[in-house]
Nucleic acid binder design. Structure first.
Lengths: 257, 257
DNA sequence: CAGTGGTCTAGACCACCCT
DNA sequence: GGGTGGTCTAGACCACTGG
């Protein structure tokens, strides 16, 4: 079943603009997996026929989805569905750089452990599952410049990742979000991070080889998929002696143009 | 001299798209202060005549400037130059909320001190002025929910703020960025923040009424104006017992529509 | 080369806001 | 009612990509 065979419900009398209706229809195709990550979507002329609107309206709808990060337009090639991979992922969700530098390098990742556990009350609430449900708890170490500064704890519901095990997790060729997407059909669409300063406990001190009670940056990240469904809870413990968390807000884009 | 009297250099044979040329011309008007914060810019029909292009091209240029944050379009009213003020500023550059909540409240601000000093080497480098140049060093306390959690240290060059003194600073009716903009013609266009976890020293402990050596979130913010000229160095020391630094990345905008 | 998205035109009509 | 930006049309032509 190709998307070009589908029938779409466009209501020309609706108060909702045509471009937004089309954007929503296309968005639902992504959500329902009728358009899959990396896939080429129909060209603009085809979409014009499919939706029976003018090309400007199609361009507006596709433009919004591109701005939102779901589609990528490439002139001369076509429009593709975004996918998480090594080249695009890191600089979206990895926010650290060595002191005084701007973001550049990819971190090195080292596996620590993979366990099956039961969800605590807080974890269950975040993941919207019953307390005590089966979850996976995964620990990783991340480093820059050959030294490890970050410990990541990942909590995911077993229900959403049937068949996942330590081997599959360790042997992934790409990023973790790419694994979710390709093997489990789960596409992380947005993240929210909350940062605090705490003191390191014994476990973190040992893993990062630092003194007990050192100041540590703790980051609680919630990873969600379509319609704000929470998929992953990731807690990072970061020793910020040599690295910094970077957050830039530029209103500018075109000064260099 | 109104903008409608200006002559613009639009090159129809250039490789640069018309909409980008127009965007850059308008941007330069902002930079050169020919269009001032809060001001209504000419309507689309007037811009069409001014630049001798079709309305779609104008809309593209203005749309980009709006996305960049420099202009604000209001249907039925017109298009205005963005200005920092109490209503729009806070939720752009204030990133804290009480534990477990999302961002909502405005912080309360309390003045601590205003001093004239000489720039240290690091400060001078950031501000691109000679070491030892005259600067202002200002301390503020910020709080949420009637308790203070944040100490802000602001460093600015005296050269860029002629006539600034403690009275003017304290008696500002609006935000600090609004003061820069209205009294000194300096418009902050972008910020970059770098976060670390440290332990509190004596000064910070006393100001925030916490134990010496408590874990503290330290934020180094660089505030810049057009063409990446650094205007302000702001260092925040945050006691994150009851509040969190929030950073969301949403690719989505339209799920609620 | 054929096919893609990017730019641009010259309008019409609608929704919104203020007086 | 008069003015603003928002939506939409039905094209033409250009720039880029891959084979």
């Amino acid at each position: 079943m190709s998307i070009t065979d589908l029938k779409f419900d466009i209501d020309r009398d609706s108060k909702t603009p045509l471009w937004l209706q089309i954007r929503n229809e296309l968005f639902n195709c992504l959500y329902r997996d009728e358009l899959r990550p990396g896939q080429l979507i129909p060209n603009e002329k085809t979409l014009v026929e499919l939706f029976q609107v003018s090309i400007g309206t199609i361009r507006k709808a596709v433009g919004v989805l591109e701005k939102e990060g779901f589609l990528i337009r490439k002139q001369g090639l076509g429009t593709f569905v975004f996918q998480h991979d090594n080249s695009s992922f890191l600089f979206e969700y990895f926010h650290f750089a060595l002191n005084g530098t701007e973001k550049q390098e990819s971190p090195t990742v080292e596996f620590i452990s993979f366990e099956t556990k039961k969800a605590s009350k807080a974890e269950a609430e975040s993941l919207n599952i019953p307390t005590g449900s089966a979850i996976y708890r995964i620990y990783n170490k991340l480093g820059l410049n050959k030294k490890f500064y970050i410990v990541d704890k990942i909590i995911i519901s077993q229900d959403k990742f049937p068949g996942l095990n330590e081997e599959i997790f360790k042997n992934r060729a790409n990023t973790i979000y790419n694994l979710y997407q390709n093997k489990f059909n789960i596409f992380i669409t947005n993240c929210s991070e909350k940062l605090k300063a705490i003191t390191s406990n014994e476990k973190i001190s040992k893993l990062l080889n630092i003194e007990l009670g050192s100041p540590i940056l703790k980051i609680d990240r919630i990873g969600q998929t379509y319609h704000n469904e929470t998929i992953e809870i990731r807690t990072s413990y970061v020793h910020t002696s040599d690295i910094e968390y970077i957050h830039s807000q530029n209103s500018t884009f075109g000064e260099s143009l």
